[in-house]
C-alpha cells in the first residue's frame, strides 16, 4: 500500500519544496535562460556592448570545423568513459558478490575513489603519467614505450578517459553490487542444477536481471562524461594537444572564459543542453523497452 501524505493548506508544502526550487532556479533555470538569451548576441571585443545577431552564433558554430571536431571528440570520449567505468565496475562487483565473508571490507575499499574530487583525481593521474617524473611513464619507458600525452593526442585521450573513469568505477560498483545481491539465490541455484557454469549463468540469468540497473548507470554515466569530467580535462590536458581532448563542455569554457566569446559560448551550452536532453530521451525510449521483462 502506498502511503500518501495529505497536507492541509499550502504553507508547509511550499516551505518543504522551496529550498530545492530556489536552488534550481538560481543555479539552473536562471543561468540556462541567460545562456539562451546571450546566445542571440555578439559582444564587442571590449565587452562594453553587444549586438543582436539572431541565430548567427549557431549558424557560425555549425559551420566551424573545430566545433564539429569537438563533437566527435566528445562522442569518443563519452563512449570510452562509459565503458571503462562500467565494465571494470561490473567485474569487481561480480567478484565481491562471490565472496561470502569479507565482501564488506572489499566494497568499502572499492568505494573510496568516489570520495576523490575529479580535479584532484586529475592531478593524481597527471603526476603518475607525467612525462618527466611520472612513475607509470617511467615504467613504460623501461618497457621501451615513449609515453608523452603532452604531444600525442591519442595518449592524452587515453589518460583523461582513465582519470575520468577511475573514480566513476566506485560509483558504478556500488549499484552493480546492490543489483547482484538482489538477484534471488534460488534462481542461481536453479540454473546451477540446470547445468550452467559460472559465466554461462552470469550471461544467461544474472545479466538480464540486472539490466535495469545497467541501463540506469548508462544514462547517468553518459551525462557524467558530458559535464562532470571538466575538472579532469582542465587539470590534465586543458583540452590539448591540438584540441584532441576538447570535449563540448570544455570548449564552452575555453571559448567563453578564455577566448571571451560569450555569445558563441552561450550558443554552445544551449546546443549541449539539447544534445544531452535528446540522448536521454532516446535512451529511455528505445533501450528501456528491452530491459524490462
Amino acid at each position: 500500500m502506498e502511503k500518501r501524505v495529505i497536507f492541509r493548506g499550502w504553507l508547509l508544502p511550499i516551505c518543504l519544496v522551496a529550498p530545492q526550487l530556489i536552488i534550481s532556479i538560481i543555479f539552473f533555470f536562471y543561468p540556462a535562460a541567460q545562456a539562451v538569451w546571450q546566445s542571440l548576441f555578439i559582444p564587442d571585443p571590449f565587452g562594453l556592448s553587444s549586438q543582436y545577431v539572431g541565430l548567427g552564433n549557431f549558424e557560425y558554430l555549425l559551420g566551424d570545423k573545430y566545433y564539429r571536431a569537438s563533437f566527435l571528440t566528445t562522442a569518443v570520449f563519452s563512449v570510452l568513459v562509459t565503458f571503462c567505468s562500467m565494465i571494470p565496475a561490473l567485474l569487481l562487483a561480480v567478484c565481491a558478490d562471490r565472496l561470502i565473508k569479507s565482501s564488506g571490507i572489499y566494497s568499502t575499499l572499492l568505494i573510496w575513489p568516489y570520495a576523490v574530487a575529479p580535479a584532484v583525481a586529475g592531478v593524481l593521474w597527471m603526476f603518475m603519467f607525467n612525462t618527466r617524473v611520472g612513475i607509470v611513464s617511467w615504467y613504460l619507458g623501461q618497457l621501451g614505450y615513449d609515453w608523452n600525452h603532452v604531444l600525442n593526442g591519442g595518449e592524452a585521450m587515453g589518460l583523461v578517459v582513465i582519470a575520468s573513469a577511475w573514480g566513476r568505477i566506485s560509483y558504478n560498483f556500488l549499484f552493480f553490487f546492490a543489483a547482484l545481491q538482489s538477484v534471488p539465490k534460488s534462481l542461481i541455484e536453479a540454473s546451477a542444477i540446470d547445468g550452467a557454469h559460472f559465466w554461462r549463468r552470469f550471461f544467461d540469468i544474472v545479466l538480464p536481471l540486472i539490466t535495469p540497473t545497467a541501463f540506469f548507470l548508462l544514462v547517468v554515466n553518459v551525462v557524467y562524461s558530458f559535464f562532470e569530467t571538466f575538472g579532469v580535462i582542465h587539470t590534465i590536458t586543458a583540452g590539448g594537444p591540438q584540441q584532441a581532448t576538447t570535449i563540448l563542455v570544455y570548449k564552452v569554457f575555453s571559448d567563453g572564459f578564455v577566448g571571451q566569446d560569450l555569445g558563441s559560448s552561450s550558443a554552445q551550452s544551449v546546443i549541449l543542453l539539447v544534445v544531452v536532453g535528446l540522448l536521454t530521451v532516446i535512451q529511455f525510449k528505445y533501450i528501456e523497452k528491452r530491459v524490462h521483462y
Binding site: 534462481l187 541455484e189 536453479a190 540454473s191 538480464p208
Partner: peptide
C-alpha cells in the same frame, strides 16, 4: 542428474 522444484519456483523471469 537431479532436478529440483523450489518453494518459490525460481523460474527465470526474463
Amino acid at each position: 542428474n537431479i532436478a529440483m522444484v523450489f518453494q518459490n519456483y525460481a523460474l527465470y523471469p526474463h
